[in-house]
Computed example of a mutant assay.
Amino acid sequence: MQLEVRGLKSGYGKVQILHGIDLTVPPKEITAVLGPNGAGKSTLMKTIAGHLPVMAGEIHYRGNSLVGHSALSICKAGVGVVPQDRNVFPALTVRDNLRAASLAFEGAEERVAEVLRRFPILAERSDQAASTLSGGERQTLAIAMALVAGPDILILDEPTAGLAPIFVDRIVSWVRELAEEGMGVVWVVEQNPEKVLAVSGTAYVIDAGRNSETVDAKSLLAPGRLEEVLLQVNA
């Protein structure tokens, strides 16, 4: 089942940031969301995940509206999210971070064991505090924490920001594998756009809280197109 967002309006308090966004996230595909700074990309992800209230519009998944539901109920419905920052508990060990993320679900220990099998680097560091991990390891842990809930839709808010190239490649590869296994992925792209777009299906370009373009992601790899989209420079 795909996630459908229609006419979504949202923001912070009385300040409206999104002005009627449309978005479709099919299974087995990475859907890229990009645009200039301040376009409303993170606001869109937070609203879908239930971290911000919906002012107007609809969010549907599996035939049910997610509007007005708590972040936990949306997670239990099958929509996982990896925020850009403050996405792990620094003082807890890797294993305890995963346990904390799985507390609301049955079979917590089995869920933790499964993601540790998927990410051997975390298994090797399972007794280390999250604060001692490298940036790439910490972001891997954040993704693993989202996966313990067993989502069918995974929202990633720029998961490669500031990471070393080796971890960028690993995360792109891991996320591509998740999509190939059937998961629908929404990837907010700010850094490393070429690598993300190369493995994505559809790209939604957002500007000033509105849909600007909906295109085949790989078409944005044409010379000058990314600069046009991200910097708003006419090609």
Rank of each mutant, 00 (worst) to 15 (best):
V94Q: 04
V94L: 01
V94C: 01
V94F: 00
R95F: 11
D96Q: 12
D96C: 03
N97S: 03
N97E: 02
N97T: 01
L98W: 02
R99Q: 11
R99N: 09
R99F: 14
R99W: 09
R99E: 05
A100R: 08
A100W: 07
A101W: 06
L103I: 15
L103E: 10
L103C: 09
A104G: 12
F105A: 10
F105S: 04
F105V: 04
E106G: 15
E106Q: 15
G107L: 12
A108Y: 02
E109I: 04
E110N: 07
E110A: 10
E110F: 10
R111P: 02
R111H: 10
V112Y: 05
V112P: 00
V112E: 00
A113P: 01
A113E: 06
A113Y: 03
A113K: 04
A113R: 00
A113Q: 08
E114Q: 14
E114N: 14
E114G: 05
E114D: 15
E114W: 14
V115Y: 03
V115M: 03
V115P: 00
V115W: 02
L116R: 01
L116Q: 03
R117C: 03
R117Y: 06
R117H: 11
R118P: 01
F119G: 01
F119A: 01
P120A: 09
P120E: 09
I121S: 10
L122E: 07
L122R: 04
A123M: 13
A123I: 10
A123V: 14
A123K: 11
R125K: 11
S126Y: 08
S126P: 11
D127F: 07
D127A: 14
D127N: 15
Q128M: 13
Q128G: 04
Q128E: 13
Q128P: 04
A129I: 08
A129N: 14
A130C: 11
S131W: 09
S131I: 11
T132H: 12
T132I: 06
T132E: 12
L133S: 06
S134A: 10
S134V: 08
S134M: 06
S134G: 10
G135A: 10
G135F: 07
G135S: 05
G135C: 03
G135L: 07
G136I: 00
G136H: 02
G136T: 02
E137S: 03
E137R: 01
E137F: 03
R138C: 14
R138Q: 12
R138H: 08
R138M: 12
R138V: 05
R138K: 12
Q139C: 05
A142L: 09
A142G: 04
A142R: 02
I143D: 06
I143R: 01
I143N: 00
I143K: 04
I143W: 00
I143H: 03
A144R: 00
A144L: 05
A144Y: 10
M145P: 00
M145N: 04
M145H: 05
A146W: 02
L147H: 03
V148R: 01
A149D: 08
A149C: 15
G150T: 01
P151Q: 09
D152M: 07
D152Y: 02
I153M: 12
I153C: 09
I155P: 01
I155C: 11
I155M: 12
L156P: 07
L156K: 06
D157L: 07
P159S: 11
T160M: 15
T160A: 14
A161T: 15
A161F: 15
G162C: 09
G162N: 10
L163E: 05
L163V: 06
L163C: 06
A164E: 12
A164H: 13
P165C: 07
P165G: 05
I166M: 13
